[in-house]
Design a binder for these strands. Structure first.
Lengths: 143, 143
DNA sequence: TAAATAAAAGATATTTTTCTCTTTTATTGC
DNA sequence: GCAATAAAAGAGAAAAATATCTTTTATTTA
């Protein structure tokens, strides 16, 4: 469904949110360990998200990644869009460029409903909201 | 959402269904042209589907691909499963192996609904059903 | 200012997906 | 049986996604 990149991104964001709630900044090594992802790979992903302002970072001692209030309220849809673009929310299910409302592909209308449901679900899932549900146990973020 | 391979497969199957309804077997070149896909690539895909009995084929003059009654009644879900496997219908949205009903990831339950909706939609879409809707115009199957 | 820390950036490697080309095998019609 | 047709199979090539390693830059603390 999502790319690996995107999965790591979501997991990392939830992980960072949790740590931020606990008052900590968190280093890339700990994030990689915490979500069981390749260290340098998740570093790259977070660099990109940092550039886009989806996550905050600070260099040097006591540095690391964290979320400000705006980032804490971002939705999973924002993350998916930042990483994978919005082809998953838009584009035709059969990959047809021409497909549109006026010239719909065979599954256009059905597909639209599914995609909208997916978007709504992700849009309603705020990064910061997961922390309550987790109650300190982050174990399940590891693959 | 789907892999390119899978998109081509679905388009080809709908195209072949149409031709079969018209009483023709259809060659790989015409299929490639008809759905605007790389010729050798779609050939590979159909070979695989042929081996799995999802599409029928005959060599030699007047040969080509076609659908028997069983294949005509296959659903898009069958095709997706044959090509991409059922990871899109099953696996965790965040790519977590451990994720399960008893130890759900943060978006497990929401995701389940979406995935089920997608499956139901594809399962209810029979390959042969599209031909009625198309009325001879296959133009939209080209990307 | 120096040392330590930690992200940013750049370069490279690996794997998977997508795509291409060539040869082989089966079938048909003459 | 021979020529023509068309899929099957095999072997790569190119591109994209995923992963790794090294160097650079910024920040903090002592």
């Amino acid at each position: 469904m999502f790319s690996k990149t995107c999965e790591y991104a979501i997991r990392a964001m939830i992980f960072i949110a949790q740590k931020t709630r606990e008052g900590d900044r968190i280093g890339i090594k700990d994030i990689a360990r915490g979500i069981d992802s390749p260290e340098h790979f998740i570093a790259k992903i977070l660099q990109e998200l940092s550039r886009k302002g989806i996550v905050q970072s600070a260099k040097g001692p006591n540095g690391g990644f964290y979320l400000d209030n705006v980032s804490m309220n971002r939705s999973l849809a924002d993350i998916v869009r930042a990483v994978d673009g919005d082809k998953i929310f838009q584009g035709c299910g059969l990959g047809l460029r021409q497909c549109s409302e006026s010239q719909p592909c065979p599954i256009h209308h059905e597909f639209k409903k599914i995609r909208f449901g997916l978007f709504e679900m992700l849009d309603n899932s705020k990064v910061g909201a997961f922390t309550d549900a987790l109650e300190g146990s982050l174990a399940f973020l590891k693959r």
